[in-house]
């Protein structure tokens, strides 16, 4: 089961500043297990999407180059305080996670 995310969304003028922390191992698939010498299978987030009040505002591709427990910050023009931000991710094993926050 995927561990929960953390989202913080605040208005700065007419721009919403959204900051997302995702809990993920982000295995590159290139690392060898020091004990067995075998490659550790790749396990990383492949797609992150974000929507504000149901409208998609961000669609990002990710791969094994992103660090463990990724942090993603982005700015969206237009929303108002009280609007709902939903963030989803999917990883290469098909695991999914979703979280939502209210813009403050």
């Amino acid at each position: 089961m995927a561990e929960p995310m953390r989202i913080r969304a605040t208005m700065a003028g007419d721009v919403a500043d959204v900051k997302v922390l995702m809990n993920h191992a982000m295995e590159t698939g290139l690392r060898k297990d020091a004990k067995t010498g075998q490659l550790v299978p790749a396990h990383y987030i492949t797609e992150v999407t974000a929507s504000v009040n149901g409208t998609k505002v961000l669609d990002a591709g990710m791969s094994g180059g992103i660090s463990k427990n990724p942090y993603l910050g982005f700015k969206v023009k237009g929303p108002k305080a009280g609007d709902k931000v939903v963030v989803n991710w999917v990883d290469n094993k098909g695991d999914k996670n979703t979280a939502e926050a209210t813009i403050g």
């Binding site: 561990e3 929960p4 953390r6 900051k19 922390l21 809990n23 463990k68 427990n69 942090y71 910050g73």
Partner: peptide, 12 residues
């Protein structure tokens, strides 16, 4: 602080 994954650990 908003970028600090330590908060994920605190939540856990």
């Amino acid at each position: 602080k908003d970028a600090n994954p330590g908060f994920l650990v605190i939540d856990q």
